[in-house]
Every structure is written in structure tokens, then in C-alpha cells.
């Protein structure tokens, strides 16, 4: 479904994505994993063909640079947060995209129904809750029933309830045979949705692995967030990685995935290095649902 070869994208001197290659077969689901600035969003934009890049990317065999319009017709894209004209009403926005994607009004209504937004057509986009916005984005992405859905941190601005709704919808889509590519900061989502994880760091693909390898699941995994002084975050991340933990910087604290019964381990490891931990938050349990394969 996706074939990316040597994709490189520079912003000035910095290579945001550097010579990255991967393939994704139809029906597969892959998560992009990496800290902020690792190049996940840039890679997604390259794959959508909305920014120029070197290397080749094709979707369903269609080159995204030469036939961007046709390639994008195969993709439903869900951004981090739906950015659409705030003044327009939900129904009108839906109709606009329905026309762009050349599907019928009937289909648009169906699509809204599928994400449970029927009855909200008169609401203005600005008045929608975060979860509703993301559901609207999903509805738009699903309008033309595309085989591939690309999502850029679709849940990062949502609360637990909203996240649950989105993840549930995506799991249904997987079950229906859609191909998924998504960026995420949350191990629970990755575990729930992906069968492959591409770990990125500074624009490079450093590991092509599976959630099970990344987070050993013989014991249920839990994610704790450590709040440190800003200066010590990088040092702390290194220390924890040395100690064998899966760590990522999330802009706001340090997220560490730990087995359920060894939650104090990272703190101890940091204490050994004399890095002070201001606060600890245990994120909600990762529920590992059964994934139909």
C-alpha cells in the first residue's frame, strides 16, 4: 500500500527526514514512534505529497509527487487536530469535503452517522468538543471509503473518553481491512492498533519492530510520567534508556513504560544519578484488547 524509498526532506540545514525507506502492505497497521522532532509529521506530509521531498513515495502504486491528486484519493488523512474554518457548520463542512472527494450527499450522511455525529449538522466547527472534531475528521477521511488511513497523533489533544472513542473506531476500521499508518505518543494506542512500529530518531528510521518487542508484555505494562527539571530531561532519558526502559520525551515530562509491578524502578535509577524527580504520574492502564488478526 505504501512504498517509501530514500525519503529525505531538509528544512534549511536540518534533515527532518533522512533517507528513510519502508514498505507497508495492504491491511497492515504501522505506528510511527519517536520523540517530538523525530520527523514523524514531516514523513507523513511527504507521504501525502503536500511537501516536496527527495526520494520516492507511492501509495497503492501511485507516485505521490507526480500524481498527488490520485494518490491522495486513496488516503483518508486525520490531523492532530482538525483545522477547518471555525465558522462553518458541521454539515456544510462535510458537504464541502464530500464534493471535493466526489461522493454523494447520501454517503456524507452515512459517514457522519458512522462516527456518531448525526444530529450535530447545525453546530459550528468551533463549538465542537475535541473528540467530536476528531470524529468529524475521521468521517471526512472515510468519505470516499479509501483503503489507507493516515493519522498524525490523532488523540494527543483528547481526554481519556475522546481517546477511547477514536481508538475504538480505528480498531473497527482495522478489522474491516483498512491499512493504517499513524504517529502516536502513547504506547497503549500503539499496542492496541499497530502490528508494526517504526521508531524514528532525528529523521532516521532506527528500528522497525513490533509493539511486543518494544514493550515486553508478559507483565501488563504501565506508563508513568516523570516530571523533572527541564535541564535534566535529556540526561534522565539517557540514563533510563541505559537501564533498559522505553522512554520518550513528550514535551511535558518524561514517559516511561514499565511493567506493572516495577513502577519505582525508573525513579530509583534516576536517584542513583542524582537526578531529582519532582512528581510522578501513573497514566491509566494500558488495556491490551484482543486484536483480530
Amino acid at each position: 500500500m505504501i512504498r517509501a524509498t530514500e525519503i529525505t526532506r531538509r528544512f534549511g540545514r536540518v534533515e527532518a527526514v533522512s533517507a528513510l525507506s519502508f514498505e507497508l502492505e495492504a491491511g497492515g497497521s504501522v505506528a510511527l514512534w519517536g520523540s517530538n522532532g523525530a520527523g514523524k509529521t514531516t514523513l507523513i506530509r511527504c507521504l501525502l505529497g503536500v511537501i516536496r521531498h527527495r526520494g520516492q513515495a507511492s501509495i497503492g502504486g501511485v507516485d505521490v509527487r507526480r500524481h498527488g491528486r490520485q494518490a491522495r484519493a486513496l488516503v483518508g488523512y486525520v490531523p492532530q487536530e482538525l483545522a477547518f474554518h471555525d465558522d462553518s457548520r458541521l454539515g456544510n463542512a462535510m458537504m464541502f469535503f464530500a464534493r471535493l472527494r466526489r461522493v454523494s450527499r447520501h454517503r456524507a450522511a452515512e459517514s457522519l452517522d458512522a462516527v456518531g455525529l448525526t444530529g450535530h449538522e447545525r453546530k459550528r466547527v468551533r463549538d465542537l468538543s475535541g473528540g467530536m472534531k476528531q470524529r468529524l475528521a475521521l468521517a471526512v477521511a472515510l468519505l470516499s471509503n479509501p483503503p489507507l488511513i493516515i493519522l498524525d497523533e490523532p488523540t494527543s489533544n483528547l481526554d481519556a473518553g475522546g481517546r477511547g472513542e477514536v481508538v475504538a473506531t480505528l480498531r473497527r476500521l482495522r478489522a474491516d481491512g483498512k491499512t493504517l499508518l499513524f504517529a502516536s505518543h502513547r504506547p497503549d494506542e500503539v499496542i492496541a492498533l499497530a502490528d508494526r512500529v517504526l521508531v524514528m530518531e532525528q529523521g532516521r528510521l532506527i528500528r522497525d519492530t513490533t509493539p511486543a518487542e518494544l514493550w515486553p508484555t508478559e507483565k501488563p505494562v504501565q506508563v508513568i510520567r516523570l516530571y523533572l527539571t527541564l535541564a535534566s530531561e535529556a540526561e534522565a532519558a539517557d540514563a533510563l534508556r541505559e537501564a533498559g526502559h522505553a522512554v520518550h520525551l513528550n514535551g511535558d515530562g518524561l514517559c516511561v513504560a514499565v511493567p506493572r509491578d516495577r513502577k519505582a524502578e525508573p525513579i530509583t535509577a534516576l536517584a542513583r544519578r542524582q537526578i531529582e524527580v519532582r512528581d510522578v504520574e501513573v497514566l491509566e492502564d494500558v488495556q491490551i484488547p484482543e486484536v483480530k488478526q
Binding site: L48, V50, G68, R69, R72, V75, Y77, P79, A83, F84
Partner: peptide, 17 residues
């Protein structure tokens, strides 16, 4: 600036359109 450009361009349309 509003960030809507990306979303529009991610649809099956060209920049010229």
C-alpha cells in the same frame, strides 16, 4: 496560519486547484 492549508492539501486536490 490557521493550519487549514495542510488539511485541504491532504485531500485529493492539487495546489493549482
Amino acid at each position: 496560519e490557521r493550519g487549514t492549508l495542510l488539511y485541504l492539501l491532504a485531500q485529493p486536490v492539487s495546489r493549482t486547484q
